[in-house]
Measured scan of single mutants.
Amino acid sequence: SLEGTEKASWLGEQPQFWSKTQVLDWISYQVEKNKYDASAIDFSRCDMDGATLCNCALEELRLVFGPLGDQLHAQLRDLTSS
C-alpha cells in the first residue's frame, strides 16, 4: 500500500514501459519499503529502463541489488502479470 506517499511515478504503468527515472523511483521505493541498506546497491548499474529491467534474470538482479534482488524479481513478476 502507498498510504502517506505521493503517487509514485511508476504506478499504473507496466514495468516494461518504465523510463530510467521510473525504474530508479521504483527501486528506491522498494529499498524504503523493505528497510534495505541502500549502500549495498550498485546504483551505477541501475541505469536501465523498464524493458531492460524486465529482461534481467534473477541472477543479474542479485548481482546488482544483492539480497534485495529476489524481492525485486518477485515484485516485477507480480506487476507484469497483473
Rank of each mutant, 00 (worst) to 15 (best):
R77N: 14
D47K: 09
E32V: 06
P15M: 05
Q30M: 15
K7I: 04
Q71I: 14
N34E: 08
T52A: 12
T5Y: 03
E3D: 15
Q30W: 03
Q14H: 04
K35D: 15
E32N: 15
K33V: 13
Q75W: 13
G50C: 01
W10E: 03
Q30V: 11
D47H: 14
R45L: 11
Q16A: 06
D47Q: 08
L58Y: 02
R45D: 15
D70W: 02
S1F: 05
G12C: 02
L24V: 14
R45Y: 07
N55M: 10
S28C: 14
Y36A: 11
L72K: 01
E59L: 06
G66W: 02
L63T: 15
E6P: 09
E3K: 15
G12I: 09
L76E: 01
K20G: 03
F17W: 14
R62K: 04
F43H: 06
N34I: 05
Y29E: 12
W10H: 04
V64G: 13
A51K: 13
Q75L: 07
R77M: 14
D78A: 08
L79S: 10
W10V: 05
V64L: 09
L68Q: 04
T5I: 14
E32A: 13
E13W: 06
T52W: 10
Q71T: 13
L2P: 04
A51C: 04
D70L: 07
L68K: 04
G69S: 11
L79D: 07
G12M: 09
A8R: 14
A40D: 12
G66Q: 00
D78P: 04
E13L: 06
E32Y: 02
F65C: 07
A74H: 07
S9N: 04
K7H: 11
I27Y: 02
T21E: 11
L11R: 07
A57F: 02
L53Q: 00
W18D: 00
Q16R: 10
E6G: 10
A57P: 15
V31G: 05
S81F: 03
F17R: 12
S44D: 09
E13A: 07
S1G: 04
A57M: 10
F17E: 14
T80L: 14
E13R: 10
L58K: 09
E3V: 09
V64T: 15
E3R: 09
C54S: 08
C46V: 14
G66H: 02
S39R: 09
S9R: 05
D49W: 01
T80K: 07
Q75M: 13
P67Q: 07
I27C: 09
E6T: 11
Y29A: 10
A40E: 15
Q22D: 03
F43K: 12
C56L: 12
G69Y: 02
V64D: 11
D47Y: 13
R45G: 09
I41E: 14
Q22T: 11
E6A: 12
E32C: 03
L11M: 13
A38D: 06
S19M: 02
D49H: 02
T80M: 09
Q71N: 13
D42K: 04
D25G: 11
E13P: 05
K20E: 03
F65M: 03
I27P: 01
L63M: 14
L63F: 07
R77T: 10
G66D: 01
Q30N: 11
G4I: 13
L58P: 13
W26A: 00
V23I: 01
Q16S: 12
C46T: 09
L72R: 00
A8E: 10
G50T: 01
S82D: 01
W26F: 01
L68S: 04
V23W: 00
M48I: 08
W26I: 00
S28A: 11
N34H: 14
T52E: 10
Q16D: 10
A74F: 14
C56R: 10
L24I: 09
Q14W: 08
Q16N: 05
V31C: 08
Q75A: 15
R62E: 05
C46D: 02
A40G: 14
T52S: 12
A57E: 15
S19P: 00
D70H: 05
L24S: 11
Y29M: 07
E59H: 15
E60D: 04
S81K: 03
E3T: 08
A57N: 15
C46W: 14
S39I: 10
P67V: 11
R45K: 11
W10G: 08
S81Y: 02
A8M: 15
F65K: 00
V31T: 05
S81P: 02
L24G: 11
E60H: 09
M48D: 01
S9L: 07
D49S: 08
W26S: 00
R62H: 08
P67A: 13
E59M: 08
Y29V: 06
Q30C: 10
A57Y: 07
V64I: 07
G4Q: 04
W10C: 04
T5E: 12
D42H: 03
Y29S: 07
E3W: 03
E32M: 14
L58A: 08
D42C: 02
K35Q: 12
L68D: 02
T52D: 05
Y36C: 10
D78C: 03
E59Y: 07
Y36G: 10
R77Q: 09
G4T: 12
N34S: 12
A40W: 11
Q30G: 02
C54L: 13
A8W: 14
L63P: 03
G50A: 01
I41G: 04
Y36S: 07
W18T: 00
W18F: 01
G66Y: 01
S28H: 12
D49L: 03
Q22I: 15
Q75F: 03
G12D: 12
